[in-house]
Write a protein that binds this DNA or RNA. Structure first.
Lengths: 152, 152
DNA sequence: TGTCGTTTGGTAATAATTGTCAAGAAGAAA
DNA sequence: TTTCTTCTTGACAATTATTACCAAACGACA
């Protein structure tokens, strides 16, 4: 995890430089915060984290910086059925288990799923850059909770 | 398409009855509207459609009814990276091409993709109910547009 | 260190969604 | 079909999520 963060920091500096973006404290801390989490936080959740570390950060800045990260490829917005954006600093191909009960999003890494044979002929109408599979269902925490409620 | 709508209407009546829900004009029209579209509209887009057909519908009602449809299985919220919910009356397994430029969501039906071999051992920690693949990239309309802009 | 263009913070505005509650319709019973 | 009960809706207020704006502050480079 630490190694990942270190690499991410180096990537951050390189990508910012390449894109002519200043290395500000805000960008640095927001990236660190996002990269250290595996729970695909919303912008507001990132803000809550960051607010403890930088006195007086603005919510606006967090939203703006996250958007910047997406545009330069340092982060991704992940697909989810909620009506708010969730961010992920891991931009490599992987998939998600999302609990329809509590909304938690769990990463799923799987080599076979990363190398699907795509249906022939699509590329004519749509240039596919990447894909991600969203598995919907019930996480183990919610399974237990739901069973408990039924047994009452 | 008409046949699909007819089936959907029958399903609508059956499912409402089974769940003890009244067959109101609002629910009927909202379902018809959603089922007749293939573009995965947001709640507001559905509202715009429905507002023409029922005098004085409330936006609240549209949001509420769509949520009801999801809870009784007549519709799904589809996963997308935007910060608003999109709905789909087709609850059978299928996948989506979403354009990262304009946001359009195109259906993709493919037998192979519908029968993926899931990684072993997951089911212990997460009960998978279904899955859907989101392909991200550029739709043909945007490809053309982006090329045009470059050539200027 | 000074300059200059980039970024940020604060606030207001907008978009998306939800909560509340009285009035109005559906469905069952008579 | 009329009445009654309960489910739904509509109007409006309240939240939540996100964006726009602009003056002040900061980072990069000479």
């Amino acid at each position: 995890m630490l190694a990942i963060c270190k690499n991410k920091t180096r990537e951050f500096e390189a990508v910012c430089k390449r894109n002519g973006l200043a290395l500000t404290i805000q960008r640095r801390v927001i990236l660190e915060c996002l990269a250290s989490r595996i729970d695909h936080p919303t912008a507001d959740q990132v803000y809550d984290d960051v607010a403890d570390k930088i006195k007086g950060v603005s919510r606006t800045t967090v939203y703006r910086v996250l958007e910047t990260f997406v545009s330069i490829g340092l982060a991704k917005k992940i697909s989810n059925p909620e009506s708010k954006a969730r961010f992920d600093a891991d931009t490599t191909r992987h998939h998600h288990l999302t609990c329809t009960n509590c909304g938690v999003v769990i990463d799923l890494f799987d080599n076979d799923l990363n190398n699907l044979r795509l249906p022939a002929g699509i590329e004519k109408d749509f240039e596919i850059a990447d894909y991600s599979i969203t598995f919907t269902g019930t996480c183990s925490a919610c399974s237990g909770r739901l069973l408990d409620e039924k047994s009452k």
